[in-house]
C-alpha cells in the first residue's frame, strides 16, 4: 500500500475542507477501499476518515413514515436500530458481509462506492430513498449511474440516507459463494402508490429497477404475478460464478421469494 496522510476530522465542515486537498479521498468503514488500496489500485495522498464525525452516525425515524440512517453508521447498528422502523432494511444490513465487516462498513461507504454487487443500493433504489450530502439531496433514481459510478461530485460527502417506509418489503440475496457479496439480490418494496423492485449483483449497469415486475406486482402483489415475465439477459453480468442466463433466472426467482417473504 502506498503511504498517505491520515486525517480524522471531528466535524463535517472540517471533513469537507480536508477533502478539497489534492489527492484526498474519504474513508468510511474501509471494508472495500482498504483491500483496493492493498492491491495498489487506489493510492490517495490524503485519507480523510469520516468515522470520527458524530453527526454522521445513528438511526432515527418516525414509525410508518421514514427512517434516516447517518452515512457513517455501521451495518451492525442499522441491523439493530432500524429494525423497529424498517425490518427489511435492518435485515439487509444484518446480512452484509460478516459480523466483523458489519461492525466497520457503513451505508455511506457502500453507496459512495456503488459496487455492482453491494446490498445497500438495492434497498435505496427500491425504497426511493433520498441521499443527503454535504451539498444537496439526491433522489435514488438519480443517484446510481452505473458500475462504481454515482451522482456524487468531487469532494461531496454523503451525510445520510432517508428511506420512506413501505407497507411491505423484503430483500432476498443469493450469495456469491466466495466473496459473500450478492451474486444477485432483489429488494421488493410495496408502497401505497405502487411496488418498486431493485436488483443488485446482476447487471453490467449496476443496480437497476425491474419495471415489468413493478407493474405486475403493483397490480397483484403475489409471486404468481411474475409467472409470465421474462428477464432480458443481454445486460446481465456473466462470470465464473454465473452466466447471464443464470443471473436472469435468479432475478425472477429471488423476486418471487422476496414477494413471498414481504
Amino acid at each position: 500500500m502506498h503511504n498517505f496522510d491520515f486525517v480524522k476530522p471531528a466535524s463535517l465542515d472540517e471533513a469537507v475542507k480536508a477533502l478539497s486537498a489534492e489527492g484526498a479521498q474519504a474513508l468510511s468503514g474501509g471494508q472495500t477501499l482498504m483491500p483496493t488500496m492493498k492491491q495498489r489500485l487506489a493510492a490517495p495522498d490524503v485519507l480523510v476518515s469520516l468515522t470520527g464525525i458524530a453527526a454522521l452516525k445513528g438511526v432515527s425515524g418516525r414509525a410508518g413514515a421514514s427512517v434516516t440512517v447517518g452515512a457513517a453508521t455501521p451495518h451492525a447498528v442499522v441491523a439493530a436500530e432500524a429494525r423497529a422502523f424498517y425490518p427489511a432494511l435492518a435485515a439487509l444490513a444484518g446480512g452484509i458481509g460478516d459480523p466483523a465487516v458489519r461492525n466497520r462498513g457503513t451505508i455511506g461507504g457502500s453507496l459512495a462506492n456503488n459496487d455492482p454487487a453491494a446490498c445497500y443500493p438495492a434497498a435505496v433504489l427500491a425504497s426511493g430513498a433520498t441521499i443527503t450530502t454535504s451539498r444537496r439531496d439526491i433522489a435514488a433514481d438519480d443517484y446510481f449511474q452505473g458500475l462504481f459510478s454515482t451522482a456524487l461530485e468531487e469532494g461531496e460527502i454523503i451525510t445520510g440516507v432517508t428511506f420512506p417506509i413501505p407497507q411491505k418489503a423484503a430483500y432476498v440475496k443469493f450469495n456469491q459463494p466466495a466473496s459473500r457479496f450478492a451474486l444477485t439480490g432483489v429488494f421488493v418494496a410495496k408502497y401505497a402508490d405502487g411496488v418498486r423492485v431493485a436488483v443488485t449483483g446482476a447487471s453490467n449497469n449496476g443496480v437497476f429497477r425491474w419495471s415489468d415486475a413493478e407493474a405486475a406486482l403493483s397490480a397483484d402483489f403475489s409471486a404468481g404475478a411474475l409467472a409470465g415475465l421474462t428477464v432480458d439477459d443481454s445486460e446481465m453480468i456473466a462470470d465464473l460464478h454465473g452466466s447471464a442466463a443464470y443471473r436472469a433466472n435468479l432475478v425472477k426467482v429471488l423476486t418471487g421469494r422476496a414477494v413471498a417473504a414481504a
Binding site: Q176, P177, A178, S179, R180, L240, H241
Partner: peptide, 24 residues
C-alpha cells in the same frame, strides 16, 4: 465450491478469497 480457473491467457480468475470459494 472450490474452483481454480485460468482464462485462456493464463490469468488466474480465482486468485483471492473474493473469487475462490471455500466452505464457511
Amino acid at each position: 465450491c472450490e474452483s481454480t480457473t485460468y482464462d485462456e491467457t493464463g490469468q488466474l480468475l480465482t486468485g483471492s478469497y473474493m473469487d475462490y470459494a471455500m466452505p464457511r
